[in-house]
Simulated assay, not measured.
Amino acid sequence: MERSSQIFDGVDECPLAAALPLVADVTQDRGLQYITTFNSDDLDKATRLGFEPDPHIRQLHPRDEIDTSGLFRFRL
């Protein structure tokens, strides 16, 4: 049985633009969070093909003011 990687590289803009709305719908329906990173020019390409990123972008504001803050339970 062949195992696939959880990391993908070099996805063309059309599949990316089709995948992002699907991921957004599935994660919203199931109450999940999906974290992805890619170059901003790839996001621009997907946007030109109809994906609207603004409702899905969450800005991270890590801080270390209290004992429970941090990033993924790591203190900064």
Rank of each mutant, 00 (worst) to 15 (best):
S4H: 10
A18S: 10
T37F: 11
S69E: 15
D12R: 08
H56C: 04
C14H: 08
L16E: 03
P21L: 04
D9Q: 09
P15K: 05
S40V: 02
R63S: 11
P55H: 06
R48I: 00
R58I: 01
L22P: 00
F72W: 13
D9P: 00
Q6I: 07
Q59C: 03
F74T: 07
D12L: 08
C14F: 08
A17R: 03
D54N: 14
H61N: 14
N39W: 10
I35N: 09
H56N: 14
V23H: 07
K45N: 12
G50P: 01
E2C: 03
D54M: 04
R75P: 00
D42V: 01
F72V: 05
R58Y: 07
E2D: 11
D44L: 09
L22K: 08
E52Y: 07
L20G: 00
P15E: 01
R58L: 10
E13C: 06
F38D: 00
T47Q: 14
D12C: 03
Q33E: 12
P53W: 08
L49Q: 09
G70M: 06
Q59S: 08
D29W: 00
Q6D: 09
P62Y: 01
N39P: 12
S69C: 06
M1E: 09
M1L: 09
L49Y: 09
F72S: 01
Y34E: 03
F51Q: 05
R73Q: 05
G70H: 11
F51T: 00
K45W: 04
T36N: 04
E52H: 09
E52A: 14
N39D: 13
D67H: 13
Y34K: 04
D25T: 06
N39C: 06
A24S: 13
R58H: 14
R58F: 13
L49V: 04
D9W: 11
P55T: 09
D9E: 15
L76P: 14
I57M: 12
P62T: 03
R73L: 05
Q6P: 11
F38A: 02
D44A: 15
P15M: 00
L22G: 05
F72R: 11
T27D: 05
R75T: 12
D42H: 06
I35C: 05
D25H: 11
P62A: 00
R3A: 13
A24R: 01
F51G: 00
P15R: 02
F8Y: 12
V26K: 08
K45A: 14
F74N: 10
L71R: 07
D44N: 15
D44Q: 10
Q59Y: 11
L49T: 02
Q59R: 15
I66Y: 11
H61M: 08
F74P: 00
M1Q: 09
V23D: 02
L20F: 05
Y34N: 07
H56M: 01
I7L: 15
Q59W: 13
M1G: 14
F72G: 01
I66S: 14
L22F: 05
D67A: 15
S69D: 15
R30N: 09
D44E: 13
E52F: 04
D54V: 06
G50Q: 04
V11T: 03
I7V: 15
P53V: 07
D25K: 10
L22Y: 05
A18G: 09
D42W: 03
Q33A: 10
